[in-house]
Amino acid sequence: MRLDPLLTERLVKSLLWCFTGLTIFVLIFIITFISVKGLPQLSWTFLFHDIEDMGRTGGIFPTLVSTLYLTLIALLVASPLGVGSAIYLTEYTLEGWVTRLIRFGAECLAGVPSIILGLFGFVLFVIKLNFGWSMLSGGLSLAIMILPTIIRTSEEALKAVPKEYQDVCFSLGISKWQTITRVVLPCALPGIMTGIVLSIGRSIGETAVVLFTAGASLRTPTTLFDSGRSMAVHFYILAREGLSMPNAYGTAAILIISILLINITAYTLMQRFLQKYR
């Protein structure tokens, strides 16, 4: 038996719209739920006090510092590597097996699960290099995690810069490197920033990598070799051990809201960039 095509059309369409509605609802619900439960917990003491009684009371100040510390190290290491890779791929080589190998490496690295990165960071940085559970170990492991994102977005940004600019610069007797640093990179900067900002978001939310490389010390880290728990790790421990629901919600709210703001920034930057070059 064949259904009337118009009827099928209407049935299928309403079903698909329902599914879409459900998906969007679930995703919006997550944010609303966490915000509604978590925002009331936020206060000056919560943000700027030390963790007390394993997190049952007190604030989350050390976790803010650790998160910032880890993210900063990751960015300082991964940005030059990533942007440099992208420059090499777009400006210095022809498509060939070298570029294919490099791109394949980046793509595979992007797919490596964070627990494997955690294992790797643990054995290499924490144990073999004897950095211990520390900001340095954690930051380096996160750097490996965000490297592929930075490479990919930077590559796209560099490719979007009109080739004519380079022709003009070369015809003016400007060397390749000067052309890249003075003309191409400034034009691609918003696109490159998008990748970097997205990476900040990922570093802030990452748990598995950080837990096994930076540890979970309650103190505020000062040197590179201090251990410290990031916000995400702190939240994980609070939630898993059921130490304090209000504090867990509060931490989750800060996590989610900061990541959303960061991603919105990245998105806006990207839109601006695309508008300029399309």
Binding site: P162, E164, Y165, D167, V168, F170, S171, L172, G173
Partner: peptide, 13 residues
Amino acid sequence: LRRRVGMVFAKPV
């Protein structure tokens, strides 16, 4: 050489 031999392209950039 390129500084001594300047070039103007068909399309102004």
